[in-house]
């Protein structure tokens, strides 16, 4: 907040973007002497939702979890357990498959989600509502 004030951002306003699948994003704006009268806030609320929708469209990301899922059920299982901090060996034991199979599912997920590491795949899967 102190840093923000140094840049002349004294007061701000935050609009959470919430969808049927839960919290998705927020749009924030701030200024030196912002007009935060009720009418202005109502307009900002509206502008924020349109700005977010436009950004999402430009970035080509369907930010609603309704989009088609890319992972298979097994891949989601594996990533969900990885998100719980389980190792490949532990996941293999839980799912009753070999460790190699688990690693294969992880590799498939990484490819599908365009992720370099397992952690990144988990994060991407969480964000896109896959798991």
């Amino acid at each position: 907040m102190a840093v923000a004030r140094d840049f002349g951002l004294n007061k701000g306003f935050l609009v959470p973007i919430v969808r049927s699948t839960g919290f998705q994003a927020c749009v924030t704006m701030a200024g030196e002497r912002p007009d935060l009268e009720p009418r202005a806030k109502q307009a900002l609320h509206l502008v924020s939702m349109y700005a977010h929708a436009r950004c999402a469209a430009l970035m080509g990301c369907e930010s609603d979890g309704q989009r088609r899922r890319v992972l298979s059920e097994r891949e989601r299982d594996v990533l969900a357990w990885a998100a719980e901090g389980k190792s490949s060996w532990e996941i293999a034991t839980i799912l009753g498959v070999s460790e190699r199979t688990v690693n294969w599912h992880v590799e498939q997920s990484k490819r599908k989600l365009d992720a370099v590491t397992r952690t990144q795949a988990v994060i991407k899967a969480l964000r896109s509502g896959e798991i």
Binding site: A53, A57, Q66
Partner: peptide, 18 residues
């Protein structure tokens, strides 16, 4: 609103939210 935007609709507000 986000749903309609995601579905590709043009949504024109007629006034401010209440």
């Amino acid at each position: 609103l986000p749903l309609f935007h995601s579905m590709g609709w043009t949504v024109v507000p007629l006034g401010l939210p209440e």
